[in-house]
Amino acid sequence: MASYSTNEFKAGLKVMLDGDPAAIIENEFVKPGKGQAFNRVRLRNLKTGRVIERTFKSGDSIEAADVVDVTMQYLYNDGDHWHFMSPESFEQVAADTAVVGEAAKWLQPEASCEVTLWNGGPISVTPPNFVNLRITETDPGVRGDTSGGGGKPATLETGAVVRVPLFVDQDEIIRVDTRTAEYVSRVKE
């Protein structure tokens, strides 16, 4: 089993912690004058997203996690699972609702996602930073009001609800930043 010594620790390194895969966020080397050195580490549990703090004795090793981020195309949802395919290898994986999590509300077929695989199985899905989605329901647009002030809720074709400016109408396509869930602009078809 591959492992990493503390002197290989750096942000982004994927390791096994308490049985779960985790990514190092921050690694600080501390050492008193004459004594034992430590690596004070912040990690993110890649399954739960929770941030964990842990101190390691410098020189200790930790098991490496077989974790890779793969760009995959979202194909369809069969009711239980969300199916993704690598456009290069055509390999397919199925992720359940717990794995897809918040990403679900942005996914449209053919969307290009980052899928994190641990030992070949999906553990998290990151949607594209920007998606173009059709508004299925919102109050009628207020013609002429392009100030962008105020706003109203709009339900998108994926079920997500975002605030949009008053002048935006139902059936229009809008661009949304998935990281903040904020409206960016209208998109002309």
Partner: peptide, 25 residues
């Protein structure tokens, strides 16, 4: 409230070093 220490630690000086480097120093 120091972060947990990974691995076994049965050495008194190791704990003192941990507390010096994280808190006292």
């Amino acid at each position: 409230q120091l972060p947990p220490l990974a691995g076994p630690a049965h050495d008194r000086d190791l704990w003192l070093d941990l507390i010096v480097s994280h808190v006292v120093g």
